[in-house]
């Protein structure tokens, strides 16, 4: 239960924020936490707490698999550093680049294909797969 104690503040905050389907299990020295945040702000708040509790997040003792609630049709903001986000024909970097979404552009979620790749549609009608890491639900 040591890790539950170490990350007690984080788990408590997750409960307070109303993270849906919140579950946590400790296994082989790693605390696995999963659930769905209601907003990008809640998600960011939890990650900031993680960084505060475990400086540099270097202990490797927390697997915080939290996603952000986004249904098909949700608006997503492109959160690349400054570059364009590639839109590909298949959910992989092997996929042909069939379009691009600019930094800060808002696109529409078509489906969450998997944890890493989401199918999106731009305002211009370009539709394809983009890396989910660079998409934040609004």
């Amino acid at each position: 239960m040591a890790l539950q104690d170490k990350y007690a503040e984080l788990l408590q905050t997750a409960t307070t924020l109303g993270i849906a389907n919140l579950a946590s299990t400790e296994q082989e020295g790693v605390l696995h936490v999963s659930g769905t945040a209601n907003s990008t702000a809640d998600y960011d708040a939890l990650w900031a707490l993680y960084a505060k509790i475990d400086p540099n997040m270097a202990s490797g003792d927390l697997m915080m698999n939290i996603d952000i609630k986004a249904d098909a049709g949700a608006q997503l903001k492109v959160t690349t550093d400054s570059t364009n986000l590639n839109i590909r024909s298949t959910p992989s970097t092997e996929g042909e680049i069939i379009g691009k979404a600019a930094h800060d552009e808002v696109v529409t979620l078509v489906e969450k294909t998997d944890d890493s790749w989401w199918k999106i549609k731009t305002a211009d009608g370009e539709e394809g797969y983009a890396y989910a890491q660079y998409l934040s639900p609004l």
């Binding site: 540099n56 997040m57 490797g60 697997m63 915080m64 698999n65 996603d67 890493s116 890491q133």
Partner: peptide, 17 residues
């Protein structure tokens, strides 16, 4: 660093950073 950790977590991959 934050981005990397978030990416690893969404891929559900344990890490040594």
């Amino acid at each position: 660093r934050m981005k990397i950790m978030q990416m690893l977590a969404s891929a559900k991959v344990l890490s040594d950073v």
